[in-house]
Amino acid sequence: MTVVRGLISLLVFPGALFALPAGWFMMWLQRKINARAQGRIGPPFFQPFFDFVKLLAKEPVVRPRLQGFLMTVLPLAAVASTLGAIALLPVFPKAGGFSGDLVLLVSLIEVGPLCAVLGGFVSRSLYGGIGASREAVLTLAYNVPFLIALFALVASAGSFSLAGVALAAAWPVRVLALIALVACIPVKLHLNPFSAASAEQEIYAGSTTEYDGPRLALWELAHALEWVALTGLVASLAFPVADAAWPVRVVVFVAVSVALVVVLSFAAASTARLKLAQTARWFLLCGSGIALSALVVAFVRL
């Protein structure tokens, strides 16, 4: 039974069958909102899907065997781990198994950026290298508030299970922690103002500069899945509806995720890109400050 449930959550909901279209939809929504905020028409609805299919159909550049292998495996690992993280999201709390294990979920989410760092260095492009080193610095910087905020939630709820956290965390702690978590999302998704890792005016596409065709399509896929995973993580923490029937839970989960996309898109449209040092400083001071205050509140209430 657990295996079946696990497979369903990996492959159907909130896994591949849901997450892929949802990721493309979120990417489209972000681009559309960005376009409307700028007074443009914006891309058609199926554009992210078209992009993916077009990239898949392209003939890959011939590379040295090891490099080609790594450049295929790394984005694949990013896709697989992000998909795994999505499958762990506790849309249905009390599901049992590994579902909602916070430690496993966070480590799976972290595999994606790690693969991007490695992928940038493996591609042996100068710009890819700079993008990778920026990605690495930013990963270190935002993980401080990210982990502190999660730890505050865990401390408040007294549980390492996402479902437990979602149900039991005290609201003052939760609000502060969620603010810190939401602030970390733009870094992972390369959105303004924290998009230094893929600043196209400086370093083209950052770590994916040298990727092409199907390999780039895999990165795009991982990117789309990251949208679902990160907004889903916040959504499942923000509005747990434990007592409702499962369709209500699904609707709330999707609605909160989409609302989060809208908020992030408008925030991205209304800011310039901060520099690497400025971004890192922001996360180490402001972001960590918010997260630490969540932690303090959590311990005071204990």
């Binding site: 960005n34 905020a37 700028q38 007074g39 303004n192 998009s195 005016q201 310039a272 890109r273």
Partner: peptide
């Protein structure tokens, strides 16, 4: 504006 990643302001200027 475009070079500092501020596309909204870029579009405002070009408009």
């Amino acid at each position: 504006c475009e070079l500092i990643g501020f596309e909204t302001l870029f579009m405002a200027c070009f408009g």
